[in-house]
Amino acid sequence: MSHALLAIDIPDLTPYLPGIIFGTLAAISILASILAATAPKIVHAAFGLMAAFFGIAGLYAMLGADFVALAQVVVYVGGILVLLVFGILLTGRTRYALGLEREPSAKWPIFAGGLFFFGILLAIHGSEFNVVTDPAEPAATTPVIGRAFLDPNQYLIPFELASVLLLAALVGAAYLARRRRST
């Protein structure tokens, strides 16, 4: 597919599209999580976290995990991130946020994190994974996931336990977070 427009041959990018999309999503995820790790203002860190959530949701979609990608956006961006921002805004008056004291140097944590990253890279490089190099085209996963969750021979009991855990955690959180009257 080469256009003769302006006598420039535009190369056919179609076979490279997955690589380009993956590269973009990977860059968004990594840069946003670095922003979340290093932004001086914690609200900026929360925005970095949001971008990282979206980038990772895109990677899930590329991996053919459509339901997990949507759940990621709904639960993480719509739920957990909103909770975190509430937490940030309700507890804003800290020493560091008020500029009363400088945040301690992040030099050693960054060094340790970089070391850890290269350790994982070495481990990935040195591992033999039992993988399919050219997996089949992804199909819709939602029906499969739904059946697996409600099949007594598969994940019915863990699924119900997770529901009870969520209910207990949210009731407990509501109980803990209510404001005490004069003590």
Partner: peptide, 11 residues
């Protein structure tokens, strides 16, 4: 991403 999270927790 994991390393960035680790740095966040430590720093």
């Amino acid at each position: 991403v994991f390393s960035a999270g680790l740095v966040t927790v430590m720093a």
